[in-house]
Design a protein around this nucleic acid. Structure first.
Length: 638
DNA sequence: TTAGGGTTAG
């Protein structure tokens, strides 16, 4: 038997590398190329059966006349099988094969092509390391680290690397590239620096790839200043920054929220003749989109078109999505038509965004037309699309149709998510159909999120069922669903409406104690309740307490003025205006404008005109020949 | 080697 094993492993591997079964055989690492003569022998190809698993392989034995078959890929498939080590042990023993490190490295490298392989790969690596007469090569370490880092298993990667360091391998450039990439992705800076030092020691010059991997690692770990330094080194060194380096830096600035610097770099690259590519544009567009700067998104898209660059489908998604969010459904549709003309395929997300935008603009016919067109083109509407349809119908008072679509989803096994449920519960609540809303809430087929709770709490509170709303608020906590600033706003508003002022104030304190940051809307609910019950000073005090916490609510004072004027409490409004000026919380000119607008909004045109034609708020009291600002109070006194 | 979308509440 041993005699028949004499055919070298190299022959088997060489044959296998040529077979179409081998995934990505063209990308096989260079150290799998000959010479293989030092490898222990494996069964010759003619033995090999088209195995389904390793047990087949083991039991096959010599069978003449069979076609050579790619058994290595079969072993790779067995990587999905947890008994790999055991099987391989048996296999190696049976054929008395000495496990070659290159084989282990190969399996580890290939295992990266399967999802969630880090655990198996790691155990395989450990198992192989324990085999008699076997020692891991540099590549084994590099590949297992690569697999571990790609699945964010950084602790294990560190463990393996500590072992690696003790072995005293000579660093080479491909190992260095891989390690820099792995450690960069994991933010393992210490390890990264070790590799860099080792490269220097062993005279391995960093290539453009090494630099770019390093840059990407630094940027992803938010070490932006270090990335800037590396960039500088590249600019002054032999290896100049290329398009990837620039794109990585731009990504860094975007992630850091420094869009201005990203744009500067974008302009700088043009000046240095490194033309921006589709990735540069897409990165910038994504950043603009995230900052809701949809206009810049559109400008970048137009620039891309002018340059004749290929426009990726995702860029269209961003531009169309941005226009839709801005309520510009027609403009969004125009870009959509460009996309179709360019031969760039649409997708469910783009259709859904357009349907939503048209529906929000009240054009339900166009929205439904797009829905049908999408279906005719073979796109299957998903849970988000149905969510948009149901929400649009609810918003437009077409609750019955929304319910029909809900039934349709149920009948056709379409997933119904919490968004669709919350839209429907909200629709029912706003239509006063509380019982149905509550029933739907209880019967929900998925986990309830804060939206679902909030819409129902709102429905209850607005329909005079404040106790039930508070019960639901408590149940929310019991069921582990986080209360949000919306929950508190709804309840504070509801409690004030029910004249349960002290409870409303307590609710505000609970919110603060929970570390939930109030916003303009929540303070509006509180201040409205307080102002209408004559406690303007208390509202001001609470507002003043927020400032030291760094919470500045831009419209707070304006909202209070509006509420007071609308309630005809002009004296209190004037007192508030004077207080705001005296505390220097707002420039007098603006307070004056706010006051005029508030009076106008409240329909009190007479006082608004009087204020406009006086020097109140900005003028000086010359009668008493003391330079003093005329108080707003004089508006109602004189 | 670098980039990745759509729906909901006060």
């Amino acid at each position: 038997m041993r005699k028949t094993l004499a055919k070298p492993f190299s022959t088997a591997i060489a044959t296998l590398l040529k077979t179409p079964y081998l995934p990505n055989s063209h990308s096989s690492p260079s150290f799998f190329k000959p010479p293989y003569s030092t490898f222990a022998p494996l069964p010759p190809p003619e033995w090999v059966h088209p195995f389904n698993d390793l047990s087949d392989l083991i039991s096959a034995g010599p069978k003449s006349g069979l076609q050579p078959s790619p058994w290595v890929p079969k072993i790779l498939l067995i990587l999905q099988n947890t008994t790999l080590e055991e099987d391989l042990s048996v296999f190696c023993q049976k054929y008395l094969i000495k496990l070659p490190p290159s084989f282990v490295a190969y399996i580890l490298k290939q295992s990266g092509q399967f999802p969630n392989r880090a655990d198996t790969a790691f155990r395989f690596f450990i198992w192989a390391g324990k085999q008699k007469g076997y020692a891991h090569s540099l590549e084994c370490y590099v590949f297992v680290i690569e697999v571990l880092c790609s699945e964010t298993n950084f602790d294990r990667a560190k463990l393996v690397f500590d072992d690696f360091k003790s072995k005293g391998f000579l660093m080479n450039s491909s190992a260095a590239n891989s390690l820099v990439r792995s450690f960069g992705n994991g933010g393992m800076v210490e390890e990264l620096l070790w590799v860099w030092r080792k490269m220097k020691e062993n005279g391995v010059e960093p290539s453009l790839y090494t630099y770019n991997f390093l840059m990407n690692g630094l940027v992803d770990s938010m070490f932006l200043e270090s990335a800037e330094k590396v960039f500088e080194v590249m600019e002054n060194g032999k290896v100049k920054p290329d398009i990837v380096t620039y794109n990585t830096m731009i990504k860094g600035y975007c992630k850091w929220g420094n869009l201005k610097k990203a744009i500067e770099m974008f302009q700088d690259m043009e000046a240095r003749n490194v033309g921006p590519d589709k990735i540069t544009f897409l990165t910038l567009m994504q950043a603009c989109y995230s900052e809701t700067d949809y206009n810049s998104c559109l400008k970048l898209y137009n620039e891309m078109r002018d340059k004749g660059l290929e426009i990726p489908s995702h860029a269209y998604s961003l531009v169309i999505g941005g226009l839709c969010k801005d309520g510009k459904s027609l403009e969004g549709y125009a870009v959509f038509e460009n996309m179709v003309t360019d031969g760039c395929g649409s997708n469910v997300a783009i259709y859904t965004a357009l349907i939503d935008a048209f529906a929000k603009n009240g054009d339900l016919e166009m929205a439904m037309g797009l829905f049908r067109r999408m279906e005719n083109e073979g796109f299957k509407p998903d849970e988000v699309t149905y969510g948009v349809i149901v929400n649009s119908l609810c918003r437009n008072g077409r609750l019955e149709e929304a319910l029909e679509w809900f039934d349709y989803c149920l009948r056709n096994n379409v997933v119904i998510n919490a968004v669709l449920y919350s839209s429907l519960i909200d629709g029912l609540g706003k239509a006063g159909r509380l019982e149905e809303a509550e029933r739907l809430f209880e019967e929900m087929g998925c986990a309830r999120d804060s939206y679902c709770y909030n819409v129902l709490i709102d429905a209850l509170a607005k329909n005079g069922k404040v106790d039930e709303a508070v019960n639901l608020f408590e149940r929310m906590e019991e069921e582990g669903c986080g209360q949000t600033v919306y929950t508190f706003t709804i309840l504070i508003d509801g409690l004030f409406r029910a004249r349960r002022n002290e409870e409303a104030l307590k609710m505000w304190d609970v919110m603060m104690d929970k570390g939930i940051t109030p916003n303009s809307a929540s303070f509006r609910a509180l201040s409205t309740g307080l102002c209408l019950s004559g406690k303007v000073a208390r509202a001001c005090k609470i507002l003043d307490e927020l400032a030291p916490m760094g919470i500045v609510l831009e419209s707070a004072f304006e909202d209070m003025m509006n509420v007071l004027c609308r309630a005809g409490r002009v004296v209190e409004a004037c007192r508030l205006a004077d207080g705001v000026v005296e505390r220097g919380r707002e420039v007098p000119g603006r307070v004056r404008t706010v006051m005029i607008n508030a009076l106008r909004k409240a329909g009190n045109d007479d006082l608004a005109m009087k204020l406009m034609h006086s020097k109140i708020g900005i003028g000086y009291d010359r009668m008493r020949s003391v330079k003093k600002r005329v108080k707003f109070r004089t508006l109602v006194v004189s």
